[in-house]
Design a protein around this nucleic acid. Structure first.
Lengths: 348, 348
DNA sequence: CGACGGTTCCAAAGCGCTTCGGATTTTGCA
DNA sequence: TGCAAAATCCGAAGCGCTTTGGAACCGTCG
């Protein structure tokens, strides 16, 4: 069933039927009702390709997900971010298309996306400290919103990000308050902007207490469980091991916990662990009694908000760049406790 | 830049340019080369909407991801499955569109997908034992491939699935060989087909040894970490606790490990754990020395194969349903060992 | 009674592409 | 050299929709 058939069936012109369906004022309420009923009865749905061809709008948003070629890793936060965004799209009648892209062909991917015209806007994931995609997309003239920031980018652009620096500053301060002085930072890949900002927060908190950072206690890698395990295992074997770990991801924190157990220590007692918690669904840190003390910022909510922001920009491309900072909650779990009064001695 | 402009610039008709670009034989090699060069130079990309309107094909695949409304949970295997599928799509020039759908509006979602005509085929995720989507989609006449099976569906359809029954039968047999007799099964949601099949395999292995299953040792829930923890904790507190756990997901297995540690026991020594491992990237079970003994079947590979199967069906809709079973590897890690000779006594 | 401003509807021109049916040119062969 | 067949190319229709520019009709007012 298409417009022409529906119009013929109703004895109306395509114009009128189209206008009735799209809520234009030039059609009487009576006919509009008649048209709507007929559309419902026949199950008519306008062909989005034809509509897109005529209007120039695609009614779809593109998400470009970077895949680090080194690890072929699909960051689990994307899943929940996208789940959030899709709620917004659904309500607004937008579709969502996914493009996975390696590091190499990124610019090309965006150019193709624009040239094909299959999407009206783009959400940029996983920005790095210096990220060429932002000036590139600005130049392309395609509406976009960045999930995160790119610290070295001067020109304005739209983004939504959690307060990574603030969260990790608070987290580190919390550990310092508990008496910890040797606090390890197990961060994400150092090229990623969020990791950079978290390190800044960590360093800031240390500096405020006059604690000198120890490079041996700072690492940045793809946030897997084995990474957390290995890093913690190695650090716990140092001559003066850390008494606390600040970790960028629950998954790595689980690895840290394993290393702590393997070393015959108790988490939250001998060694404290404070993790960031993106609050994704299947790896819940627990609602009532969280396992890990954590800085929590729901990534799903971020997805929802990013999508809303993007739709606003598409509706009105003249809008000045919009930005939004989400605060992280500090939630207290069982994984932290006061620093052991007497530094643990590593057996020789 | 569009076809007409490109044709004008070349002094050719749109017809010829279109044919040259799409590899039709009615155009000389010389002009084809000339056209291709001009297209490259001007950066011309055909408008997919216009093309789709003319051809009737959308050059896009729809993935409908079920979100269990109860847990608002996005199963992490989708991430890696989709990553695999997208490799296939990329190579074939297909786009991927995602639709998240609650349990309620599923049929509607598929109908809309068909009516809008935005996709040429669908991948169905997370089939239940009895899944109405399969007859529904068959009736719609839209090519589709199911990732998994629906055991109660009689009519033929295309699917790709791992050998859940076989894998869990082997896994249980492996534990039985080690002397375990009280083997717990921590499964996924019992309505899910994969969980059903895994239980069948488990029961089959027990039956083959004449071991009666104990309902107190069988559970099925959404596979989160806390679920694994609680279930294992409760079972370890039974009068005659299990000596081994068969777990449907690494994430839950991590919870089991936590419960074992909390109980003051050692995994792989006092209690064995054997998990299924979908081999997704960020939760690697370790390549060389796997942490958990596990049945491994890479979900990413499944995504790739499912996508290929679907594209075949789209190319030739007359094809009879195709099915494919993936075998799981049994990989040996540190989490299993012989059953303790003297059954552990739970302190009163 | 005729002109006039609203209201309601329509015809037709695109949007950018594919493809059918034909026209024109080139080639092969007697 | 002549002519059918093959090789190239083109015009135009059509995919299903939106939207511009009018046309027809209504009631109303001077």
């Amino acid at each position: 069933m298409n417009l022409r058939q529906l119009a013929a069936q109703l004895g109306l012109s395509q114009t009128t039927v189209s206008r009735a369906l799209n809520g234009y004022p030039e059609v009487s309420e009576a006919t509009r009702r008649r048209v709507n009923e007929a559309a419902l009865a026949t199950g008519y749905t306008p062909n989005p390709r034809a509509r897109g061809l005529a209007t120039g709008r695609a009614m779809a948003i593109g998400h470009v997900i970077p895949i680090s070629t080194s690890h072929e890793m699909m960051n689990p936060v994307f899943g929940d971010f996208i789940a959030g965004a899709s709620e917004t799209y659904l309500a607004a009648g937008y579709d969502m298309t996914l493009t996975l892209s390696g590091d190499a062909d990124e610019a090309d991917n965006y150019r193709r996306l624009k040239a094909k015209g299959n999407v009206d806007g783009i959400i940029v994931h996983g920005p790095r400290i210096s990220d060429g995609r932002i000036p590139f997309l600005t130049g392309l003239g395609m509406p976009f919103v960045v999930h995160g920031r790119a610290s070295q980018t001067r020109q304005p652009y739209s983004w939504i990000d959690m307060d990574n620096t603030g969260a990790f500053c608070r987290a580190a301060s919390f550990l310092l308050d508990l008496g910890h002085r040797r606090i390890a930072l197990l961060n994400g890949l150092e090229t990623m902007d969020f990791a950079h900002r978290r390190e800044l927060g960590y360093l800031k908190a240390l500096a405020a207490r006059g604690v000198a950072p120890d490079p041996a206690l700072i690492r940045g890698e793809e946030m897997t469980e084995p990474y957390g395990y290995r890093a913690a295992r190695d650090m716990l074997a140092l001559e003066t091991p850390p008494t606390a770990f600040l970790v960028s991801s629950l998954i790595s924190a689980i690895g840290v916990r394993r290393a702590i157990h393997d070393a015959g220590l108790r988490m939250g007692h001998d060694v404290s662990v404070l993790s960031h918690d993106d609050d994704f669904s299947y790896l819940s840190n627990g609602r009532d009694l969280p396992l890990f003390t954590a800085t929590r910022s729901p990534v799903r909510e971020a997805g929802r908000l990013a999508a809303e922001m993007l739709l606003r920009r598409i509706a009105d491309p003249g809008l000045p760049p919009e930005t939004r900072v989400l605060e992280a909650q500090l939630i207290i779990g069982d994984s932290t406790g006061p620093a052991p009064s007497r530094p643990r001695q590593v057996p020789a």
